[in-house]
Write a protein that binds this DNA or RNA. Structure first.
Lengths: 334, 334
DNA sequence: TTGAAAGCGTTACCAC
DNA sequence: GTGGTAACGCTTTCAA
C-alpha cells in the first residue's frame, strides 16, 4: 500500500461536506446527528457527500459545544500485575455503565513515568483514579483541584478521597482458621518494602497476638512469584518449624506454593498457605489458593461512584464508606 | 464531606481568570503555558488567580486549537483474560512511547457491548485497535474511514489492516518435539467454536500429518481453565491412549494441567501438554507450561506502528509485515 | 425544511 | 510585555 505523498494536507471539516453537498453546515450537522427536521433526500445527499470525502467530525469541536462526555484517567503501576488488572477491569465496567470513557495509563512501576503521566493527564481527562507512589503534595501540584480518587493508599489521605482496603477482620479470620487447624507456628511473607513493614503485616501481627501465635517469623518478599518462592526458602531456613504462612498478596503466595512443592512440602498438609487479594488467578494453581479476598469490583465501583459525586458536586462518600473489606475465602491451600 | 448545594453552576473559563487577575485572556494563556514574554509578577498574579478560582483549561478547546494530542481506542473482549491483558499492556507501552493516549474498552465478550462501544468510540478517538467479533462491513459502517487495526483476525482482512498471528511453524515445532519425545498419540483441545474449527487446529492437523500422527483426537473446549479440564476428561475418555495434548491456548492448557493432576496423570511423564500464547501466567503453574509463544509486545508495537502510518498517510506496513510469528517455548510440561 | 449568526474555550498572530 | 482579533470545527437558537 503506497499512499500519495503529501496526501494528508488538511482535515476535512463540516464546511467541506456542506459545500460538496450544496447545503449549509447545520444541515450537515442535522443529517449526521439524526435530528429530525430534514428532508430525507437532502439527508441522503449529505451523508453521501460526507462518506465520499471521508469526513469525520472533530471530537474537540463537538466536545466543546456539547458538554456531555466524561473521561476518566486510570493510573496504575502495572497492568500485568493481576491485581491491577482486576482493578482496571472493575473500573472499566463501572465507567461503562455510566457511559464514561477511561484512558488507562500504565506507569510500569516507575516514578518517572508516573510523573510524566501526571503531567499530561490533567489536560486529557475530567478526573483521575489511581494508585500513586508520589507524595500527596506532588500529586496536588499536578492535579490542581481536579477530582482525584486514590486506591489503597494506606495512610488515610487528607486531601484526596481514597479507597481504603481493610483486611483486619479478614486476616484475623485467616489466622483463626489456621490456629483451628492446629497451626501454631505461622510465618508471614511480607512485601519487601524499603521502609516500614506493610499494614498487612500489622494486621497479621495483631491477629497472631490475639491467638497467642508468635509474630517473629516474618520475611520480606519481592512482589512476584519468584520473590515469594525465594522468601519461603529463606523463611523455612530460619524457621523450619513453620507449618503455615500468610503472605502479603496472592502473587507471593503462588510463588510460595510452587516453592513448597519443590521443597517437597505438601500443601496444605505440610504447609498451609493463605494469600491476600483473592485473585481469580488463585483458582488456577494447584491446590487452589486460600486468600483474604478483596472485592475488586466493589473497589472499582466505589472509585467511580466517588468520582461521580466529586464531579457533580453532590455529597461525597465519607471515609468510612470508601472502604473495601477483605474476607477470608478458603480453598485448597489451607 | 458536604459541599454547598448548587455549587457547580458554571465552568470556570479563562475569561474568569483574566477578569479576576485584571489581565487579558492571552496573558492568562501565556502564564499557564509557560510561554516567555510575560512579566513574572503578572504571571504570578495570574497563577494565583487561577488557583484561587480552581480553574482548569478545557481539553476540548485546547485540543481544538492545537492539533497535537493523539488518542487511540483499544477494544478488547475481556481484560481479565490474560492474553488480552498482555496485548493491552503492550499497546499501552507502545502508545506511551509516542506520547499517545489510549482509551480502553472492555466489551466483556458481548456483541451488544461491542456494538455500543463502536457507536461511541468514533467520536472519542483518532484511531482504533481492536479485537472485534462483528463483521467487517458492520465495523466499517461504524468506523467510517477512521484508521482501524485489527488483531488476530484469522481470515485475511481486505478492508482493514490486521495483525496476523502465524503459528504454523511454532505448532510444527511443538509436534516435532512431542514426536521426538516418543509421543505418537497426540490429542488437541481446540477452541469450542460454534462454526468451523480454528486455524490453530489447522496448524495442528498439518503438523501432525507431517509427522505421521493421527489427527482425529480433537475435542472442543471452552476458553477457560475449567473448560480445558473438562475437555481433557472428555478427550481421555474417548482416547485413553493419548500421551500428549496440544491446546488452543494457554488458559485451556492450564486447566488441562490441573485436570491431569486430578486424574492422577503426571505431567509431563504420563501426559505432555503444550499450550499456545506463551502467557506469563504459564510460568506460575506447576509444572511450568510449554507453549507456542506469541510475542505480545511485538503485537502491540506493530499495531501502534501501523496506526501511526495510517494516521500520517505514510506508507503502511504490508500484510506480510503485519505478522507475529509464534515459536515454541519449552518448559516443564512437555 | 433550511440557513445565518452566535457561541463553546482556547491559542496564534499581530499590533501596540 | 500586553491586549485585540481571528481562527479552530462544531451545535444551537432563531428567522426565514
Amino acid at each position: 500500500m503506497v499512499s500519495t505523498p503529501g496526501a494528508e494536507p488538511r482535515k476535512i471539516t463540516i464546511n467541506d461536506v456542506a459545500r460538496s453537498a450544496g447545503v449549509s453546515r447545520q444541515t450537515v450537522s442535522r443529517a449526521l446527528n439524526d435530528k429530525g427536521e430534514i428532508d430525507s433526500d437532502t439527508k441522503q445527499r449529505v451523508l453521501d457527500a460526507a462518506r465520499a470525502l471521508g469526513y469525520r467530525p472533530s471530537r474537540f469541536a463537538r466536545g466543546l459545544v456539547r458538554q456531555d462526555t466524561m473521561t476518566i484517567g486510570l493510573v496504575i503501576p502495572d497492568l500485568l500485575n493481576p491485581f491491577f488488572t482486576e482493578v482496571a477491569a472493575a473500573a472499566l465496567e463501572a465507567a461503562r455503565s455510566r457511559g464514561w470513557h477511561v484512558v488507562v495509563y500504565d506507569t510500569t512501576d516507575r516514578a518517572e513515568e508516573e510523573r510524566g503521566t501526571l503531567q499530561v493527564i490533567t489536560s486529557q481527562v475530567d478526573a483521575v483514579i489511581g494508585y500513586f507512589s508520589c507524595s500527596e503534595s506532588e500529586l496536588e501540584s499536578y492535579t490542581r483541584g481536579m477530582p482525584v480518587v486514590l486506591i489503597g493508599r494506606e495512610g488515610r489521605s487528607t486531601r484526596f478521597s481514597s479507597i481504603r482496603i481493610d483486611g483486619e477482620r479478614g486476616v484475623h479470620a485467616a489466622i483463626a482458621h489456621l490456629v483451628a487447624r492446629g497451626h501454631t507456628r505461622i510465618g508471614m511473607l511480607d512485601h519487601h518494602t524499603r521502609a516500614e513493614p506493610s499494614i498487612r503485616h500489622d494486621w497479621f501481627t495483631a491477629a497472631a497476638k490475639a491467638h497467642g501465635v508468635d509474630t517473629g517469623r516474618v520475611v520480606g518478599a519481592d512482589q512476584s512469584a519468584d520473590g515469594g518462592g525465594e522468601a519461603l526458602r529463606t523463611l523455612l531456613a530460619a524457621h523450619p518449624e513453620v507449618t503455615a504462612v500468610f503472605t502479603f498478596n496472592d502473587i507471593i503466595a503462588i510463588g510460595a506454593l510452587r516453592e513448597a512443592r519443590r521443597l517437597g512440602r505438601r500443601v496444605p498438609r505440610d504447609l498451609a498457605v493463605i494469600g491476600f487479594d483473592g485473585l481469580q488467578l488463585g483458582a488456577l494453581v494447584e491446590p487452589p489458593l486460600s486468600s483474604v479476598a478483596l472485592d475488586t469490583r466493589k473497589l472499582g465501583a466505589l472509585a467511580i461512584e466517588q468520582v461521580a459525586r466529586l464531579l457533580s458536586g453532590l455529597d461525597t462518600l465519607e471515609a468510612d464508606e470508601l472502604v473495601v473489606h477483605a474476607e477470608l475465602h478458603l480453598s485448597g491451600s489451607a
